[in-house]
Amino acid sequence: MLHVDNLTVCYGQMQALRGVSMEVSPGEMVALIGGNGAGKTTLLNTISGLVPPAAGTLSWEGRPLNSLSPDRICREGIVQVPEGRKLFPAMTVEENLIMGAYLPTVRKQRQESLRKVYDIFPRLADRRRQLAGSLSGGEQQMAALGRALMARPRLLMLDEPSLGLSPKAAVEIFATIRRLNKEGLSVLLVSQEVLETLAITVHGYVLENGVVAMKGPSAELREDPQVKMSYLGL
């Protein structure tokens, strides 16, 4: 479904990604792990079209994605929940969700999408008139995920969805992501919760200093001595 081939991304003189290749198959949940500054967020932002690649190709269902603008990529069904959630703080929860269905292709179904999101997160329905900036961390993550679902994604990319959440809220969010994946949504999950992430994904990639250091089935990565030492503290 999504193929990243030999991707290089530069910020000025610095190479943030060097020859990264990876793929996500339909219905699959893929983990992307690695330390701070490894290039995980850069990879997601490049796929989303926010950062232009210096070299390499991105393709989606056989068609090239390079040089498409972020709105075109969102239209293709590749939707990102950005790191730090990036809600619109001075807009209400419901306005945030409605902004998720901004593109004309999904705008018509927004009432139906809204009902679905409120079904998944009843707490958001209770808080619909509240400003997004006044929500707790867990609720903000729900709103961010809900906003992404409003865009009717076919590939959902989540950047650190559990960052800054209470353990309970983190468990809830992971359970929801897992359920969405079970219902057929392809997911690319970036997280520092390495154990949890490798437990719920099928495949994983370990990014270090802008290169893919390791890849393979998540179950194998969990047993890998290198991963255990670097990321699990074992």
Partner: peptide, 23 residues
Amino acid sequence: TYTGMAVRAAWQQPEAAQLYGVN
């Protein structure tokens, strides 16, 4: 209006606005 909301969204969080299709 949707366009008006996009104006506010672009002010509050330009990157996220782009991610959801705001040009």
